[in-house]
Nucleic acid binder design. Structure first.
Lengths: 245, 245
DNA sequence: CGAGGTCTTGAAGACGATCAACAAACGTGG
DNA sequence: CCACGTTTGTTGATCGTCTTCAAGACCTCG
């Protein structure tokens, strides 16, 4: 499969979970990506303050949005899986107000903003689908706010695992109850607003309760029901429902 | 001024901060609202689980998005000022994954989703402006994630005050360095993921440092520079820049 | 003037941070 | 394929921020 076809397939898969994608739309998506590149883990995909002329899609690998404070403390505000745009919002926001870092080696593809502009002029339904993608980003942000504000660390961790499992499952990246998740405990801490030491202890608690196992970057959920209960996980916020939009 | 004109003016003001609005677009906005209502403080404007057939704009008053956990703990995930849509996202997300509550008495107006649908079919630029509004919501969510995850309570509080000041100023609702903010300390706690007791002590600290005063719902910023420094506030995330979108 | 809500204060305790050290795993080059 | 260096994970001890609980003061509004 060509790079272009792989990128298109990843995006189309994500869209088709939520609505029908017409042959014409598939053709447009099939032609829209260019500039395929591989980014090393730890490198920036987009930098804070940039004014990109294109938006970037993750074709393979994990990346994250982040902001850094003067103290050096870092907060990751979103995590991107294959098929996710890392900065579709830069099309209209123009200036990046955060960076995007590759958490693992990432294969990426880009769409020119001029192409997106043309789509908004001629493809109302496809425009709404892209708008929808950014709305789901927002819904996830809200759920993370609840996790950070009101869930204890173990509930927050459980919630994150539930979310990742469903998001990965929706794009075919789970095997039974497990998935690959190549992040360190420091990164997990930056994701959840915790110290890496506390992440470590929280994970031990989850393992001791036989809720999950996590070895060599593979997470296996051992008891979905109890994990979901612990997290008070309600998947409606992921909007994994296929209907006309 | 009629209800319809007031709603249109509030929305247009917010849009014109970020991009030019054409006469035709103004005319469309002038006709799009209906169903003007007043909501009492504490009442829901939209309920979790609803499938609205319209989106709601706050014309006057303060409201907030929220989720509630089984423990009864509540987290507010966004605050809406006059001119803000509380659920523009329901147009595409379809099902509400959170509630929206009036923090003060609110005057609201609604737009039918069929009207929004028609706009997306015929008004590409206006569609992008509406999309932009939801993207700014997302940018604010991200900044709040940083606040909750990595800022101490006093920095988080300072950051919130800075944000509110600029957002209110951009729609003409500040007087010099002060603004009306009708929320209780319990609600502030729900906003920031803190207990009301800690909110109280944090506010005392801000007052003792002569950074702000807060009496009878009026916040006055006494030293913007030091407040901004304390918050590490960088207003770029509000995207208060007028440019073609 | 009374009543309910809101703010304030104190005391005690929990959750998570920090610091420091060591163990384990990984990957890189020889 | 082993050796070594670096990154990552783990543990213990101590500290600090924020929570909880409880009571009293204040304020607002009917």
């Amino acid at each position: 499969m060509t790079d272009s076809a792989t990128a298109a397939a990843a995006l189309t898969a994500k869209l088709e979970v939520r609505d029908a994608v017409s042959p014409e739309e598939k053709a447009i998506i099939g032609r829209m990506f260019s500039d395929f590149r591989t980014i090393a883990a730890g490198d920036d995909i987009v930098r804070d303050g940039d004014r990109p002329t294109h938006s970037t899609l993750v074709v393979d690998g994990f990346s994250a949005r982040y902001k850094v404070l003067q103290s050096g403390d870092r907060q990751l505000t979103a995590i991107h899986l294959p098929g996710d745009f890392v900065d579709l919002h830069s099309f209209l926001l123009k200036e990046m107000d955060h960076g995007v870092v590759a958490l693992s080696t990432c294969r990426i593809a880009t769409v020119q903003h001029t192409t997106l502009q043309h789509i908004t002029q001629t493809q109302p339904h496809l425009t709404r689908m892209f708008w929808l993608l950014t709305l789901i980003d927002g819904a996830i942000h809200r759920e993370w706010l609840v996790s950070m504000g009101r869930r204890p660390a173990i509930g927050q961790m459980a919630h994150l695992i539930c979310e990742l499992y469903l998001r990965l499952q929706s794009v075919g990246l789970t095997q039974d109850m497990s998935f690959n998740f190549p992040v360190t405990q420091v990164e997990l801490g930056d994701l959840m607003g915790l110290s890496s030491v506390h992440v470590n202890r929280t994970l031990q608690e989850l393992r001791a309760s036989d809720l999950l196992s996590w070895r060599s970057q593979t997470v296996t959920i051992l008891d979905w029901q109890r994990l979901e209960d612990l997290a008070e996980f309600d998947k409606r916020y992921l909007h994994l429902v296929k209907e006309p939009r």
